[in-house]
Nucleic acid binder design. Sequence first.
DNA 1: TAGTGGTCTAGACCACAGC
DNA 2: CTGTGGTCTAGACCACTAG
Lengths: 233, 233
Amino acid sequence: MSLERRIRAEIEDRIRSGEWRPGHRIPFEHELVARYGCARATVNKALTALSRAGLIERRRRAGSFVAFPHVQSAVLDIPDIRSVITERGDAYRFALLSRAVRPRRAAADEAPLKPVGPMLVLEGLHFAGAAAFCLEQRVIDLAAVPEARTADFSAMPPGSWLLDHVPWTEARHRIGAANADAGQAAHLGIAEGAACLVLERWTWRGGAGVTQARQLFPGPLFDLVATFRPGGA
Amino acid sequence: MSLERRIRAEIEDRIRSGEWRPGHRIPFEHELVARYGCARATVNKALTALSRAGLIERRRRAGSFVAFPHVQSAVLDIPDIRSVITERGDAYRFALLSRAVRPRRAAADEAPLKPVGPMLVLEGLHFAGAAAFCLEQRVIDLAAVPEARTADFSAMPPGSWLLDHVPWTEARHRIGAANADAGQAAHLGIAEGAACLVLERWTWRGGAGVTQARQLFPGPLFDLVATFRPGGA
DNA sequence: TAGTGGTCTAGACCACAGC
DNA sequence: CTGTGGTCTAGACCACTAG
C-alpha cells in the first residue's frame, strides 16, 4: 500500500464513518505533510483523488472540505452478461434464434446507425444454466463489419464476437421497461405482458455506427450493481 | 488547460478516433517527456489518468497499450429527478399522496434498513409540468432521522429534505422493471399492467440505514443517460 | 538483467479567492 | 495582500517483468 493510498484511505474512512460531516474542513495540505512526514506532492495526490471521487471539495485560499451530497446522482455499473452469469455460479450459454440480412436499416429505432446499407439482424438467448436470462435483438451494420456476414453466431454471442473483431471506441446506452410480447415471453419463459428491463446499446468505432443491441431481462428486479458517488455535479 | 490535460487529450483523441487501435503500444514515458519537453511526473500523471479511465493498460518493462474493451461494461449515470425535469425545460412539482408512521419495518423489501424501530412511510408523485413523471414510495427510519416525524413533505420531495437534514455517506441502487398495479397506474396515468422502470435506492449514513426509496417511471423507454467507459475490468 | 512504470522528494512558480 | 491549492521540475529509488 502506497503512502498516498494510506492517506486517502484514512481520510475516506473518517468521512464515511460520519466523523467528518459534510462541510467539515479537513487538514490543510501542509498540515498533512507534517503529520505524515512526506512531500506535498504525495498529500496533494491523495486529496486530488478524493476530490475527483466527489468526497471532498477543494477551494483555493480556503482549504478542503467534506463535500455535501448535493445531487442525488449515482452510477450504475452495467456489467457484461456472461460475467454476471458465471460470477453467480451458473453455466453460461448462448443460443441463436434467428438470423437475417436486411437490405437497409429500418428508420425508427436504429436512427443512431447512420449508414443505409445492408444490415445483419440477429436474435438470440443468453442462458444462465437452463433458465433464459436475456433475450437479445441485435443489428449489425455489414458495411462497417463485412466479416459478420459469414461469422458463426450459433454459439458465440454476437457481442463477444464483435469485441474480438471490431473493438468499439464509443457506446451509448438507454435503459427502460417494456411489456414482453407473446414471442418474447415464450422465449424467456414468462407471461405475456410481464414487465422486462430493457437495455439498449449503440456502439461506434471511430465515428461510424457498428451495431445496435436491445436486450430484454425478465423482471421483476434485475440486480445490476451498486456504486457509490457522493457530491456529484 | 494544463500540460497534463493536453497530453491526456491528445492521446485520448488518437484512441477514440481509431488511429491507435486496441493493443497498440503508446510511446514510453521518456519518449513523451522528450516530445513535450516536460518532467516525467507530468507525463506519468496523464498516463495514470488514462489508465484509471480504462483507456490504456500499463505494464512494467513492457510499456503502455491501448486497452481492449474486454468487458461490455458501461456506466449509467442516474441523475436527480428534479434536475432531469428542469433540464428538459419542464416545471417540476412534487405532490404528497400519503403519509403514515409504521411501528417497525416490514421484513421483506426493507431488509437493508437494519433498525427495527418506527418508520415513516411516504408516497408521492414527481410531476414534469402537468404529467406524472415518477411515483415514489419511501421509507424513512425515524430512529435515524427523528426530525422527519414533524417535517412537511407536502411540497418538498423527501429526497431533497433528507439531503438537507441527513447528508448520506453511502448509497446502493437496484434497477429493474415491474408491471404497474391498479393504484400505481392511476397515479401515473398509464394502463394497469404497463411496464415501469423501477429504481430502488438505499441510503446509509455512517453505517446506519437512513432511508429506502422505490421509484416507478412509466415506460416504455426512459432515457436515462449514457456514459462511456471502455476497457473495464 | 536491463528497462519499464510506481512512487516519492524537495523544492518552485503561479492563479486565485478570502481576509 | 496572504495563504491556499494547481501545477510543474529534476531528480531519485524501487518493484516488477519481459527478454
